[in-house]
Design a binder for these strands. Sequence first.
DNA 1: CATCAGGGCCCTG
DNA 2: CAGGGCCCTGAT
Length: 320
Amino acid sequence: MAKTITLKKKYSTEIIPKAPYNFNKTVCNPGHFPTPIEVWEPGKFWKTMRFKNKILGTKLESTGTINKPKIKLTIFSTSKLSKKFIQDLIEDLNFRYGLNEDLSEFYEKFKSDSVLGTRMRGAHGRKFESLYEIIMISIVLQNATVRRTVQMMNALLNKCGQKIKFDNQEMYLIWKPQKLVKAGEQELRNLKVGYRAKMFIRISKQFAKGEINEYRLRKKPSEEVKKELLKLYGIGPASLDNLLGILGKHQLIITIPPWEQKIYSRLLLNKKLVSPNKILKELKRRYGKWSIFASSLLFEDLFWRHKEKSIPWLEKEIRL
DNA sequence: CATCAGGGCCCTG
DNA sequence: CAGGGCCCTGAT
């Protein structure tokens, strides 16, 4: 394991997101399994990242409200950053945190909704992980319980990730694709990731060679992106939804994997199990063209409520 | 002790 | 398009 890198240089600026902007409900998703590449506490968020091949730490602090949002952004680095670099980085962060994304029409339309008009009001889509990160995460999620997912992710980070320290937080930065390629399949299998080793390596090779580029994909139409991502070895329909979300692609339809099916059945129709088709129909009936985005917020809200006060039936579904 | 499914996906027939 | 196999683990 490489030694910890400490990021001592700081640059701070202020950002005004488009209202309504709900900081906590945007950056934190309690339904997501915990990984040490990000840290949240109320009103504050830390995330490691690589941008233009530089290792960075970002800290966002909410200094406003949902209707009058304001964020203090601090960038941590090893060396001084150029003006141009910072400018490009901020543009990227604007996209990742949905700071310029105007959802006022959406929140106006659903202001009387019991969830969207209250607890989740102002939440934006989570897009701050890199495409590569979200692919790696999607693969450790496949066919595994949460506990094993966490084990695999930590083993990988421990072996290949970079430990970073900034603002008194010690976290990991995801490995460079090249590092996994170099490690080789057997080395990865020793980390008990099983058959996934092959997927990691194949996909990492493509990233290392620059065959897949997040920024290029952002600019392409959804259908094209979809086709390209499904070609990746180890990426199927369930993972695809995560990837499209990260790239800010709007979807008309999603696949509802079995686990989510159980949860949506209870959440939307108060039944044990209904078909994915019926779930989609109900979403459409309630939220129309916004149904995919709205459903993700309902899903997150469920986990927020669960975090505040345990929901027994959900507890059973979150198998550790 | 053995068996099995898990917050899928690939590959084969 | 249905179904077996995949790695490993904890639950039964």
